[in-house]
Simulated scan of single mutants.
Amino acid sequence: MTTRSILGLAYTVNSLKSLGYLPQPVLERHGIKLETLDPFAEIERSLELQILSELFAPVASPHIGLEMGIRIGLAGYGPFTMLLMSCQNAYEACRAGVRYQSVGYSYGEIRLDTGTEVTALCLQPAALPNALNRIIIDRDVSGTYRLIKDILLNIEQEVSLAEVWFSYPKPDDVNPYEAMFQCEVKFDQPYCRIAIKNTELSTPFPNANQTAYDYYRAQCDQVIAKRTESIEHLSGKVRKHLELFAYELPSIVDVAEAFGLAERTLRRQLKNEETSYQKILDSVRFDKAKQLLQTTNLPIDEVASRLGYQEAASFNHAFQRWSGTTPSKFRKNT
């Protein structure tokens, strides 16, 4: 089972909050706290869809997907953004975007169609529950449009679309679509499509750099490899759940509740897989500790606190047991 970046869900939740909806009760039912989410975490695709179904159940606005997608800026894509910005021009960025589309948030398969006058990003939407279909398609198309706009702003150029397609029947009110895309919008098409005039795609990017491109491509490759790892066993699912949290990692009682299991049952099933909650927790803490030590300047006692240790000495002892060195020496040598 594949996973997806937690940021897609986080941006969706934040958008719903800004539009007046209350997503927290849904997240709490799944043992998730938005304020403690780890931005580097991954979430199972099936779990994300379940949460999205529950989040959108009370939503009445037919254009909520458009409003959410347009709110996802460049910063939300991590190394994927830097990969695109280091390309030679917007056309090469489109090609790289298609190649590494799984690093993004779209549900479906994207391809690039080139013509003499226009180049089109075409999205074949994934099969989704009816309640989610239009919302997710709107989010993905408007989000892709926002990404194109932001990339072209890199060369101080406005995006000019030739045409936009949607794969579902024409809604009663098409004005929001025409106002957003400023071009002809067609519905009930075989797939979704954003057609860009070729004149928009050939201007060189000022930050084009092959070395940077290779570096961020390697990072995207690592993300993809991680997302395709199998997590069929309960221990893997528990680990993925713990990885969602940047700090205040949940207790075994919290995890059992999130999985709909009794604590005793969870312990027994993990034992059957020759592991334990404590072993999984220690492994997750070790990975998060290394990440914090390598990528931040947080004091050691603050790192310890984020990982749930009351005292830095306890964290130092645990880290030395895991790595054979102290947190300070590890940070110095990386």
Rank of each mutant, 00 (worst) to 15 (best):
N207M: 11
H30E: 09
E229D: 08
N207G: 00
N209G: 02
Y247D: 13
F187N: 01
I136F: 03
V185W: 00
A318R: 15
L152R: 02
I32M: 13
P23Y: 11
L74E: 05
T114F: 01
Q189C: 13
T325V: 10
L74G: 09
Y247W: 14
L123M: 09
A312C: 01
F330Q: 05
Y277P: 08
I137Y: 02
L153K: 14
Q88K: 13
G65M: 02
R134G: 01
I148G: 00
A75H: 14
P169M: 04
F166T: 01
E274R: 15
Y100D: 03
R45F: 10
F56H: 06
G76M: 08
Y215C: 11
D150V: 02
Y145Q: 03
Y277L: 06
E44W: 00
Y177Q: 00
A10R: 14
A304R: 03
I151C: 05
L261N: 04
R193K: 15
P79D: 09
V223F: 04
S276P: 11
S202M: 02
D188H: 04
K197T: 06
Q189I: 03
A313L: 10
G65Y: 04
D140E: 08
T144K: 11
L249D: 10
I64R: 03
D287M: 12
Y309K: 09
Q278I: 07
L55S: 04
K271T: 13
S46M: 12
A304G: 09
L242Q: 04
V174K: 03
F80M: 12
N89P: 01
L307K: 04
K149A: 08
L234F: 06
G308C: 11
T296S: 15
R193N: 08
D214K: 07
P171H: 07
R227S: 06
I32P: 07
I43V: 15
S142H: 09
A218T: 14
L37F: 15
R285T: 13
L249V: 11
Q50C: 10
Q101G: 10
N297L: 10
S305Y: 13
K290N: 13
M1P: 12
M68L: 15
T3K: 05
Y213M: 09
R4Y: 04
L16D: 02
W322S: 04
D188R: 00
K170A: 11
N154Y: 08
V255M: 10
K186E: 05
D188N: 13
L83H: 04
K149C: 15
E28N: 12
S15M: 05
N333K: 14
L153S: 14
I135N: 01
L234K: 06
R306Q: 15
G308D: 11
S61V: 00
E67K: 15
N316A: 09
R71K: 15
Q210F: 02
D214S: 08
Q189S: 08
D150A: 12
R139A: 13
L132H: 01
G8C: 09
T144E: 08
E311D: 15
H233Q: 14
R331A: 15
K33T: 11
I194V: 13
E109F: 11
D150Q: 13
E163A: 00
L201F: 03
L244D: 11
C192E: 08
R146I: 02
L123H: 06
G76N: 08
D221R: 06
S106W: 00
H63M: 05
L55P: 07
F315N: 10
D287L: 12
E311C: 10
K271C: 01
I148M: 14
D254G: 07
E263M: 06
L47Y: 05
L249Y: 11
K279L: 13
R111C: 11
G76V: 07
A126T: 10
